[in-house]
Simulated assay, not measured.
Amino acid sequence: MISLNHFKNKKIAVIGEGIEGKSSAKFLQKQGAKVTILDQKQGEGYLDRLDEYDLVVRSPGIKIEMLEKYVSRNKITSQTKIFFDISPCPIIGITGTKGKGTTSTLIYEMLKKDRKDAHLGGNIGQSPLEFFEHLKSSSVVVLELSSFQLLDLHKSPHIAVILMITSEHLDYHPNVLEYISAKRNIIKFQNSSDFAIINRDYVASN
C-alpha cells in the first residue's frame, strides 16, 4: 500500500480522454499531481514528449507496447494498478469472458444485504477512484476486471473469481495465450491468506 502523498507534485500524463481517463485525472489532481490528459484526438505526435512525465496512466484500451515506444515501462501504470496500491480494504475481483458483470453485481448485492459497506466498480459501475474517499478498512470493494485491466496488474485481489474463459478481444491481444495470461493475473500474486474461486469446467480457466 502506498501513501497518497506519493502523487503530490508529480508530473503525470493520463492517456485517453474517456470516462476512466477523466476520473483518473480528477483523482490525481486532487492529490496534488500536475496532470495532463493526452488523447489521439490531439493529433499525430501527441505522445512525442511522454518521457518528460514522472508517471503515465494508461486507459484500458491503450496498448502498453505503443507507450513503450516513448517511455520506459516502469513509468507506465493504470487506474486499476493505482487503486490496488492505495485501497485500504479487501478487494473481490471477478473476471471471465462472459458473466462477470452479473456475478459482480450479485456479490455486491449479497454483501449489501448482509449490511456490509460494499462498493461496486471496475469495468462496471463507478471508477473505484470515485468512491475511494468513502472507503474504510472495514469496507469491501467488488471489481469487475477485464483483460485490459488485468494485463499488467502487479497485485491480486484478496478474493478472486474466475468464470468461464474462452477467447475474446483478439483485435487487441496478439493471440489467445496473452488474453488467457492476462485473465490469470487475477490469481498470480495471491498468497496463502487469499481465496480463489475457479470455474473448472473450462480448461482455460484453470
Results as ranks from 00 to 15, higher is better:
Leu4Pro: 02
Phe7Ala: 05
Lys10Gln: 15
Ile15His: 02
Ile15Arg: 15
Glu17Pro: 01
Ser24Arg: 00
Ala25Ile: 07
Leu28Glu: 03
Gln31Ile: 02
Gln31Pro: 12
Ala33Glu: 08
Lys34Gly: 00
Lys34Ala: 09
Lys34Pro: 03
Val35Ala: 14
Ile37Gln: 00
Ile37Glu: 03
Gln42Lys: 10
Gly43Phe: 02
Gly43Ile: 02
Glu44Met: 15
Gly45Ala: 07
Asp48Ile: 11
Leu50Arg: 05
Asp51Gly: 03
Asp51Trp: 05
Ile64Asn: 07
Ile64Pro: 00
Lys69Cys: 10
Tyr70Asp: 03
Val71Met: 12
Ile76Met: 09
Gln79Asp: 15
Thr80Asp: 00
Ile82Tyr: 03
Asp85Arg: 05
Ile86Ala: 08
Ser87Tyr: 03
Ser87Ala: 14
Pro88Thr: 04
Gly96Pro: 15
Gly99Asp: 07
Lys100Thr: 01
Gly101Met: 09
Thr102Pro: 11
Leu111Tyr: 02
Lys113Met: 06
Asp114Phe: 02
Lys116Ile: 07
Leu120Phe: 01
Ser127Val: 06
Glu130Lys: 15
Phe131Arg: 11
Glu133Ala: 13
Ser137Asn: 12
Ser137Tyr: 04
Ser138Cys: 00
Leu143Glu: 03
Leu143Arg: 00
Glu144Ile: 02
Leu145Pro: 10
Leu145Cys: 13
Ser146Trp: 08
Ser146Phe: 08
Ser147Glu: 10
Leu151Pro: 01
Pro157Ala: 04
His158Ser: 09
Ile159Tyr: 10
Ala160Pro: 10
Ile162Cys: 13
Glu168Trp: 03
Asp171Arg: 09
Tyr172Gly: 04
Pro174Tyr: 01
Val176Ala: 14
Val176Gly: 02
Glu178Trp: 03
Ser181Leu: 04
Ser181Ala: 13
Ala182Asp: 06
Asn185His: 14
Ile186Met: 10
Ile187Leu: 06
Lys188Tyr: 07
Gln190Gly: 09
Asn191Cys: 10
Ser192Ala: 12
Ser193Thr: 15
Ser193Trp: 00
Asp194Pro: 05
Asn199Arg: 09
Asp201Phe: 07
Tyr202Thr: 07
Val203Gln: 14
Ala204Ser: 04
Ala204Lys: 07
